[in-house]
Design a protein around this nucleic acid. Structure first.
Lengths: 143, 143
DNA sequence: CCTTGACCTTCCCATGATGGGAAGGACCAT
DNA sequence: ATGGTCCTTCCCATCATGGGAAGGTCAAGG
């Protein structure tokens, strides 16, 4: 019925280190203990660990996961509240994607113009050194 | 000709904190000092700081920036070496973009199916709780 | 000359999520 | 009883950045 932290880790894909950390920071309540002080996990505990694991896979921060766990445990929650958390997170993901995309595009443009052979001339370094630089990134984004 | 760290920070967009950190970690050589121990920066120093700033804006890690600085200072570098660093970084950016994109798509699919009103039923929480979950993310990526 | 305010110095601490590893106790099978 | 595998707590590192304290410096103005 109850398993040790190592078994819980294997069963949920959350490392023992992280399980202790989640407990320490209050994301999860304190685990049960054996007489010898070993942590023990029952089925509902494993369920919560899998929940956290899945939320982390979706990129939620621990703060957001704490909110989601509270909503999960609140049977009278409004689904709109959950949706709001999810969509906020999506907006954050989209923003980060946009930033990375702008960087990637700028670098791809620069790399295209770099012959990439033994000669030292390099538009990439020229850009970094402040040549014509910063505007290109903006232009690339809007393109 | 020479400016203090605060002026260098304003002139390059790199915070004084970070300028000291770059020096401490060896990314940049030790700055000159006044008799009183104040750091002083000349035009070439500011140029290097702008280089670092621009590279960070493009998402390069400090390790990569160290490589780029070395290539910049090496007048007999092969542009192919610079291009390789840049394209490695682009590949890393693209990989991260793909991961975030998969998360965003999964969440958007789940949010679409969530009515988002006062009722408690919520496919988002159902998914996190392990309902039908993990496969959906994979499917979304390949879609 | 002295004060005031803006600046500089170093040093320590925090972030967020994760891993590594040491020292020591617990448990189980032989 | 012994060895191997687990558990416990505690400390440290990551990566790049910021906050802030305690104290020295400098320039301007009274």
């Amino acid at each position: 019925m109850s398993v040790t932290i190592g078994e819980a880790a294997r069963a949920t894909g959350v490392s023992a280190k992280m399980i202790r950390y989640y407990e320490e920071t209050g994301l999860l309540g304190p685990a049960g203990r054996t007489a010898a002080g070993y942590r023990v996990y029952s089925e509902p505990d494993l369920h919560a660990l899998r929940f956290v694991r899945r939320a982390r896979d979706l990129g939620f921060s621990m703060r957001e996961i704490a909110d989601l766990l509270a909503l999960w445990h609140d049977r009278s929650r409004a689904s709109g509240a959950v949706k709001a958390v999810a969509l906020d997170h999506v907006a954050d993901l989209r923003r980060r994607i946009g930033e990375l995309e702008a960087m990637a595009r700028t670098l791809e443009h620069l790399a295209e113009r770099c012959c990439g052979d033994d000669r030292p001339d390099c538009p990439i370094l020229d850009d970094l050194a402040g040549g014509a630089g910063p505007e290109l990134a903006e232009a690339s984004v809007g393109e």
